[in-house]
Amino acid sequence: MKSRKAELLVGLFVVLTIAAGLILALKVANQSISSSADTYTLYAKFDNIGGLKARSAVKVGGVTVGRVDSITLDNEDFTPIVAMSISKEFQKFPETSSVAILTSGLLGEQYIGFQPGFAIDGIENLVDGNYIQDTKSALVLEDLIGQFLFGNND
């Protein structure tokens, strides 16, 4: 029957789409850490964020644990505040953790390197809304070259 053939082919069409969708989902795309539900936010103040952008990665030892949510400027001391949304999978980072803005490769994109601190008694874990105190700013290539050329050492 004619309509039966059409139905069969439409069914195959749907199957094909699902297969293509699966390729995209499993082979092509990463399931990025979704923005709201299962993340918590940490803040850090940097002197200079260099080329860091919203949605840059936050990595611990090369493993992405979160993304930069937003970058704003503190209106009082004029330093940038970076809000990071970290996946709830990764909790219990000690207060002594530090963050640095690093570059992947010489010309690659910038990301936040998150260095968990040591957990000793009396040190609490970072929770939603906390500020990370220990921060290292981005290396600005021009500054480095300037230091090197003019021997600006102590």
Binding site: A25, K27, V28, A29, N30, S32, S34, R55
Partner: peptide
């Protein structure tokens, strides 16, 4: 590819 491409975005 997998590291760069994001599902939702």
């Amino acid at each position: 590819m997998q590291a760069t491409v994001e599902w939702d975005k």
